[in-house]
Simulated scan of single mutants.
Amino acid sequence: MHSTQTQTRPGTTRPGTTRRDPRTPGAGRPAATGPHSTATRTTATRTPALRPPRAPAPLHHQFAVRLLAVLSGERPAISMLNQMIGEAYDQLVLLAPRTPFRTRGMRPVVRKCGSFQPRPDVIEAFAMIGAGPQLRAMAFRLEMHADQRWRCTAVDLGGERVGAPAGV
């Protein structure tokens, strides 16, 4: 009896077999065939569905996150220098060392953020800041300036007198 051998080049597979990655489970086993094997399933069931890209967060929400990072001690106050003007930045410099939103344990996050636009060049916004069961409020005003950049002109932290000396 004479057997016929199929000659293959190194690195190729024989007809009827599939190549498997040796790092995956079941690497040495032949490819399964049949109604329940993965080889017969469509690729749509194996590839994850592509989600549409997320729209960027609104401007007032992005600003609330940055402001919270400063007021919780995660970032220095100077990181807000180009985004705040005048008295608002002075208030922030006085508030930041006290870190009014710093908590023990849980990191504070912006839970909800809303806004009102009295004029096209003004946004008045609020943010609800949560850390565990604790919930606090923060409000700020953004104004469009001549250089077409939004800058914060006022900050208010739910009940605290921003920038006022202690005991006044």
Rank of each mutant, 00 (worst) to 15 (best):
T40V: 15
S79F: 06
G130R: 13
L135M: 11
R161D: 08
P165Q: 15
L135H: 14
G26F: 00
T24P: 00
T18C: 03
P15G: 02
H2V: 03
P25G: 03
A49V: 08
L50S: 10
D21T: 02
A164N: 00
G130D: 12
A55W: 01
E160Y: 07
C113P: 03
P120D: 15
D147Q: 10
K112A: 12
M138I: 05
M106H: 12
R102T: 02
T24G: 02
Q62W: 02
A31M: 08
H61V: 12
A44H: 11
T17R: 11
D21I: 02
P10G: 08
L94T: 06
G34S: 07
T13V: 10
G114T: 14
P120L: 03
P118A: 00
R29H: 09
L95C: 02
G73M: 10
M138V: 06
D90Y: 08
A55P: 05
P30Y: 05
T103W: 03
R20D: 03
T153I: 12
T43H: 10
T17Y: 05
R23Q: 07
F63T: 08
G167T: 12
P97M: 09
F101V: 04
V155E: 06
P52R: 15
I123Q: 00
F140N: 03
C113L: 05
V162D: 04
Q91K: 11
L71G: 02
I123L: 12
V162K: 04
A27D: 10
T17L: 04
T99K: 13
P97L: 08
V65Q: 14
Q148S: 14
G114S: 12
G163W: 10
H36E: 10
A139M: 09
T47P: 00
Q7F: 09
R98H: 14
A139H: 12
T12R: 13
S72D: 14
G132T: 08
R75Q: 14
C113T: 08
M80T: 00
P120T: 07
V109Q: 13
G163E: 04
K112P: 00
G11Y: 06
P56S: 04
R9Y: 03
D90I: 08
R14V: 09
A96G: 00
A146T: 08
A139S: 12
G73P: 14
P25L: 07
L92I: 04
P118T: 01
T17H: 03
V162G: 01
R46E: 04
G26C: 01
H60W: 11
